[in-house]
């Protein structure tokens, strides 16, 4: 969440994007039109609209939020209030890869902080910071709903990476530096493993299994 220090609070920040950049393509516009049709009132389309804009611009500075509001025909203030409510909408520019390390609840007791600190040391930044090359941002995340495969992290609001170990983090970081996003991991149900001899899907590249969680070194 943004710090709200009064002295630093800037109500009229310089826009990041120029008016030339602040346009939606016709495909994007028709996607927006599609969102509008999904709901009886245009306001319902705000969240989808913000998602689309974040994927396009990387984050949601005020001028982008206004662009979405205008495109959907809803009040800018309404869109801005919504955008600041949700943690997945980035109001500030982040690294190319935002690593959301879960440290909540099950992950807390299964080494989530070990992974967080390992990453912090490895990338030389603290949670909440972005690496100098602009490649990585590390964030401490609340429960991501993958408690059985703790510790885990999510990459830039997308891929989940389960059962993290230091070596898995090492290869993840080096893959990401090479621009390689890890494949979707389908986490096999223990009962499937027993009764079906493994994962039930044959259309996934990468399989994971529920494993005995590591012993947490740090516990905060």
């Amino acid at each position: 969440m943004a710090t709200n220090n009064g002295a630093q609070f800037n109500r009229h920040p310089e826009p990041t994007f120029s008016s030339d950049q602040l346009v939606f393509t016709s495909d994007e516009k028709s996607a927006m039109q599609g969102y509008l049709e999904m709901y009886p009132e245009p306001e319902g389309a705000i969240m989808r609209g913000l998602w689309l804009a974040q994927e396009k611009f990387g984050f949601l500075p005020p001028e982008v939020i206004r662009l979405v509001a205008d495109e959907l025909g809803i009040p800018y203030a309404r869109a801005y209030g919504v955008a600041t409510f949700y943690t997945q909408y980035f109001k500030q520019k982040k690294g190319t890869y935002v690593l959301d390390v879960c440290t909540c609840f099950s992950c807390q007791v299964c080494g989530g902080y070990d992974i967080l600190h390992y990453l912090e040391d490895k990338l030389g930044i603290k949670a909440g910071e972005t690496s100098e090359d602009g490649l990585f941002t590390i964030q401490e995340a609340e429960c991501l709903g993958a408690c059985g495969s703790a510790p885990m992290l999510q990459i830039t609001n997308g891929r989940y990476v389960h059962n993290l170990t230091e070596s898995k983090v090492d290869s993840l970081v080096s893959d990401l530096k090479d621009g390689k996003m890890p494949a979707f991991e389908s986490v096999t149900l223990p009962q499937d493993e027993t009764e079906m001899g493994g994962n039930r899907r044959d259309d996934v590249e990468s399989l994971e299994y529920y494993k005995t969680p590591p012993v947490a070194e740090t516990f905060e």
Binding site: N10, E63, A77, R78, Y80, T84
Partner: peptide
């Protein structure tokens, strides 16, 4: 006028105009 909204979440909430307004 829709010039004000509550921004942020939880204990950080406060009313504000969207930036630039």
């Amino acid at each position: 006028s829709h010039q004000l909204t509550i921004i942020e979440r939880g204990v950080n909430n406060f009313p504000m105009t969207p930036p630039g307004v």
